[in-house]
Design a protein around this nucleic acid. Sequence first.
DNA 1: CGCATCGTTGATCAAGCTCAAGCCGCGTGG
DNA 2: CCACGCGGCTTGAGCTTGATCAACGATGCG
Lengths: 255, 255
Amino acid sequence: MLPIANQHAIISQCAFFHGLTAAEVMLVQQAAVTVQAAPGSFFFQQGEEATALYIVLSGQVRLSQINPEGRQVIVHIFGPGEAMGVIVVLSNMTYPVSAEAMVDSAALAWNRQTINQLMKEIPHLALNGLRLVAQRFMELQERYRELATERVERRIARALIRQMQRGNGRAVPLTRQDLAEMTGTTLYTVSRTCSAWEQAGIVSAGRGLITINDYHRLLVIAEDLPPDHQCPQPATCFYCSPILNCDHFAVKRET
Amino acid sequence: MLPIANQHAIISQCAFFHGLTAAEVMLVQQAAVTVQAAPGSFFFQQGEEATALYIVLSGQVRLSQINPEGRQVIVHIFGPGEAMGVIVVLSNMTYPVSAEAMVDSAALAWNRQTINQLMKEIPHLALNGLRLVAQRFMELQERYRELATERVERRIARALIRQMQRGNGRAVPLTRQDLAEMTGTTLYTVSRTCSAWEQAGIVSAGRGLITINDYHRLLVIAEDLPPDHQCPQPATCFYCSPILNCDHFAVKRET
DNA sequence: CGCATCGTTGATCAAGCTCAAGCCGCGTGG
DNA sequence: CCACGCGGCTTGAGCTTGATCAACGATGCG
């Protein structure tokens, strides 16, 4: 269980609460319930009535959808500070996806009435919610297009880069299977691709972990740049990825 | 140009204005501008500043995204009564997709300030907007999973069924190319598939038009049902498709 | 130590993409 | 009215990508 002070730090920084006064943040936080989930257990499951909105405090949560034959697709991976279930809880729907903890995770939860009430009292909260949804929607559209038009290797490269950008290092803690379900391919293909990249010195492959050694070359694959591509600002090469407009990413760059 | 009375009929029935009083509908309608678009011209284009929200009055509008190499994907096709740009206009973003008229089309438009103002005055409008977005989001997630896990033939079948359900007959006015861009395949594969289906008597293929003759068998393909599948209510077979929960569809059934 | 999970790699194969060639129907302009 | 061109459609041949199957290797945990 996270200490309260830490909770507060996450809440006050996360996008969903951006622009709220300290008093408002306090109000919202007091209305929340903390929920824990062990690896493999679910915050909610596909098909259940959507009764709560969550904000991840710690851990990683895999949002996935499963088809009748049992093939699974990872729609999104949530980390600390991100909100889950924003859309559905406000529209009296059932969850269209499942939220499964990948590691020990904790989240704050508000039930439907509470969050509706809070949004009425703090209109800014509703606006933030809409922004988050918009962001997620655009990302999903982008990935849909990728899946329809891009080759597997490129999709894997992009997924890796995206995950790296959401984490805070060059290591991406995903299994081959995870990556496969994120990119609509099989674990075999991911494994082969990673092996090839390791041969080429682009990544180091580990058990449930892929470390990016040559971001630039990975980017060349992800964006189909010419092999001899020179970044306009090589010193700050991280800037030049159009993936998920990530201007803020530079601050996370290792020096 | 549509007669005003007709406009009003569309507006008052469409989901975005559901639950509003007549006075409110009037207020909103008066704030709108009518926009026309000839086939091939755009209501807005990918990358432009999102300045307006539209409701289609007549025609068909193709929402598509294009990748740097020029491969295109159709994200959605809008018909009369549907709202375009709900998300983006409220979040100060650029349009992530282009909206192109497939036939002569007209839409009502509100600019950002206006719609924001209206949403403040009529909170119900904001709620409706959120519901629409939620619906679209779920549909996109569903299609994303389809693209990642389902075979081409099944995807085409599902796209056809979906389009038929949104139209009002058994004929779907799409070219092979359109269907290909909707399902992430090529026009060749769509053509072959349609030919095979025509052989089998499932559809009649025409120029820019596909007519569904045997909905039941198409459904068997779309849902991978056993070939000898019997609908629980054969007489009202249209009910039994889980695609895009379409309970309302029965009213459109031809008798 | 044994089991479970995760990963690797080879062989095989089919789905579906690509390219090429040609057809059909329609609208347009001579 | 006809010829022409264009946009849409069809079909075949060949090939590539990436899925599938199978067997085995490594790592870590209880």
